[in-house]
Simulated assay, not measured.
Amino acid sequence: MSISFNQRSDVIKLLQISSGLTSESGDPRFKQIMHKMLENICQVIDQFDVTQEEFWHAVNYLHALGGRQEAALLAAGLGLEHYLDLREDAQERAQGLEGGTPRTIEGPLYVANAPLSDRFARMDDGKDAGEIMWLHGQVKGEDGQPIAGAIVDIWHANTLGNYSFFDKSQSEFNLRRRVKTDANGRYAARSIVPSGYGCPPDGPTQALLNQLGRHGNRPAHIHFFVSAPGHKHLTTQINLNGDKYLWDDFAFATRDGLIADPVKITDSALAAQRDLPGTHTEVTFDFNLYNASASAEENRIERARALQD
């Protein structure tokens, strides 16, 4: 029986040295992870007889990916970010937790420190002629009671599928706001109906997806962080029903329980009550948060973001 190349003693020794397993310094867990990754890469090279040219093409791809700052985009597109959510879902089920708002991916386009308002915020700067959207809902806890003072952090794209900060033509924090819920746990925001969008067509993420025979499109959606003292931080987003890519999101973010129905409002009295000029689209979405078992669960995960607070 033949021995795989990566099982040879000289290769085993190489991987042990390169991952630091023969050194007493360094982080033990990190070294174990690196050793496993290197071992798996060597197994792939061995199994598919990867050539030198193919290997260096992959290395150069990583250069391009970093140069375009699309690593987080690719992580979403390959389903890895969604996989992390599935793992946390399974952990919560094992703990007997159910009934909370589903989590889904954060994506790479959050910007910290958006303006904070009580109960209501206007999110758009009025420069985009998109359809007016009235977004509102309620935040509740496990006991079904409203959570006053919860922070609903909202961000979404404009009608061209672009996000402020990354799109320099938009004003600062356009379509980005944080809203503190009132005594009844309610929040509301005036904005514009967002559009879906695709990966940059000339970027490395789309180039890889092309090789997989996949598109890089996302449906129209709205991102949220929802947090409150004593409750688990929620990272989620809602996709707008009726979009062509609703169930074909390249980033795997569409989930049961996270689909909102846009409703056309023509009632002039309701528009006036909301201080809107007339016909608009209403999007309603409520959130249910789990109790936190440790203070760390109240905070969003640490990762590189724009304008960190």
Rank of each mutant, 00 (worst) to 15 (best):
K168N: 11
K168P: 04
Q170C: 05
Q170P: 00
Q170R: 01
E172P: 09
E172M: 10
E172Q: 12
F173T: 09
N174L: 01
N174I: 10
N174Y: 13
L175D: 08
L175E: 06
R176S: 08
R177G: 10
R177Y: 06
R177L: 12
R178Y: 06
R178I: 03
R178A: 10
D182I: 01
D182E: 03
A183M: 02
A183K: 05
N184D: 15
G185P: 11
G185D: 12
G185V: 11
R186M: 07
Y187A: 14
Y187D: 04
A188N: 02
A189C: 00
R190A: 00
R190P: 07
R190T: 11
I192A: 09
V193G: 04
V193N: 05
V193C: 07
P194I: 10
P194N: 05
P194L: 07
S195V: 01
S195N: 07
G196K: 05
G196R: 06
Y197A: 01
Y197Q: 04
G198H: 06
G198E: 10
C199P: 04
C199Q: 13
C199V: 11
C199T: 15
P200W: 01
P201C: 00
D202N: 03
D202G: 05
D202I: 03
G203H: 09
G203P: 11
P204I: 01
P204R: 02
T205F: 04
A207P: 00
L208I: 12
L209C: 07
N210H: 08
Q211L: 10
L212E: 02
L212Q: 05
L212N: 05
R214T: 06
R214I: 14
H215A: 06
H215F: 00
H215I: 08
G216A: 13
G216P: 06
G216V: 07
N217A: 01
N217D: 12
A220S: 14
A220K: 08
H221E: 05
H221K: 10
I222C: 07
H223L: 14
F224M: 15
F224L: 15
F225Q: 11
F225R: 11
F225E: 11
S227F: 03
S227W: 00
A228S: 15
P229T: 11
G230S: 09
H231M: 07
H231T: 02
K232M: 12
H233K: 01
H233G: 08
L234A: 13
L234K: 11
T236D: 15
T236C: 14
T236Y: 15
Q237L: 15
I238T: 00
I238W: 07
I238A: 04
L240I: 03
L240H: 03
L240P: 00
N241R: 15
D243R: 09
K244R: 13
K244E: 13
K244C: 09
K244V: 14
Y245S: 13
Y245Q: 15
Y245I: 15
L246N: 12
L246E: 14
L246V: 10
L246G: 12
L246S: 13
